[in-house]
């Protein structure tokens, strides 16, 4: 009798512990998932899951494609400014090409948005395409040396001095945002013209054999400036940049009041870029 009671108490005790422990353990495991599934990492959606309040910044951008269409040449101006201040070389061929931001056709930036009958104007729109600064960046997951990493402010950045040039991040990026220095960017072509047309001495050039991409102008943000492309597009209001975690920021306001889409949302990367088409 006694032994039976002992056993019963043992089992009851263990079940109670399991009953209390299991859900909390599960919760711990699922916490990351719950956060991730809270929409595109937007603070409001995360709050609904009862997670801790979001602290810190997360930079993001809204790209108003119509404004670019209304201002022909604006997208090219953004690209030119970015590439010139960041010393992005121009090799004059597609194979070696390095680009941080570029104007792309809708069907290429949004290949998953295919449909039988499409608005004729859609494919004429210049879609500004750049690194998405994902909240769950596959490139950061793939990098074997932490040469690419995510800052606390959400910016996915590169350490050009640590990169070994394995290009795993380029295979991992689902947005084709990364470029590799196939040859010396500081060099000259056969005619003696430098690949970097006008050198900006305030920003480092890269060396051969490393990967590079848009850095959301982290060097400008550090001194209180907005990203260069946003500055160029600000008069037209085509690009809105700011802290997605600040409900009063201009970018949050824009996201609340407009219908936006993101690139390949099904991949769970939670981009920080939003498009108004």
């Amino acid at each position: 009798m006694d032994s039976k009671r002992r056993n019963f108490l043992k089992i009851a005790g263990l079940s109670a512990i399991a009953g209390i422990g299991a859900p909390s353990a599960f919760n711990m495991l699922l916490k990351g998932e719950a956060l991730a599934s809270g929409g595109h990492g937007a603070p409001a959606a995360q709050g609904e899951h009862g997670a801790a309040a979001v602290t810190g910044k997360r930079y993001g951008m809204v790209i108003d494609v119509k404004k670019f269409a209304d201002n022909p040449g604006l997208a090219e101006q953004c690209v030119k400014t970015c590439h010139s201040i960041h010393n992005v070389p121009d090799f004059g061929n597609r194979k070696d090409e390095i680009k941080w931001v570029w104007a792309e056709k809708f069907q290429h930036t949004f290949p998953e948005h295919s449909q039988y009958k499409k608005n004729d104007g859609l494919n004429e729109l210049p879609i500004l395409t750049l690194c998405n600064h994902c909240d769950k960046p596959p490139c950061v997951r793939a990098c074997p040396t932490k040469a690419t990493f995510k800052n606390k402010d959400g910016i996915v950045a590169m350490d050009y001095h640590r990169c070994i040039g394995c290009r795993f991040c380029m295979a991992a990026c689902p947005y084709g945002a990364r470029s590799f220095n196939w040859r010396d960017p500081r060099g000259k072509d056969e005619n003696g013209n430098p690949f970097i047309k006008e050198l900006n001495p305030t920003f480092p050039t890269r060396m051969r054999g490393v990967v590079e991409k848009c850095n959301f102008c982290v060097e400008r943000l550090a001194i209180g400036q907005i990203p260069a492309c946003v500055e160029v597009a600000s008069s037209a209001g085509a690009l809105v940049f700011g802290d997605l975690n600040d409900p009063n920021s201009e970018v949050s306001e824009k996201l609340r009041s407009s219908f936006t889409i993101q690139r390949k949302p099904a991949l769970g990367t939670h981009p920080s870029l939003f498009y108004i088409i």
Binding site: T145, R162, C163, I164, C166, R167, F180, M207, G209
Partner: peptide
């Protein structure tokens, strides 16, 4: 295949 083999 490394772009910077010295950093392997």
């Amino acid at each position: 295949d490394l772009g910077q083999p010295m950093r392997a």
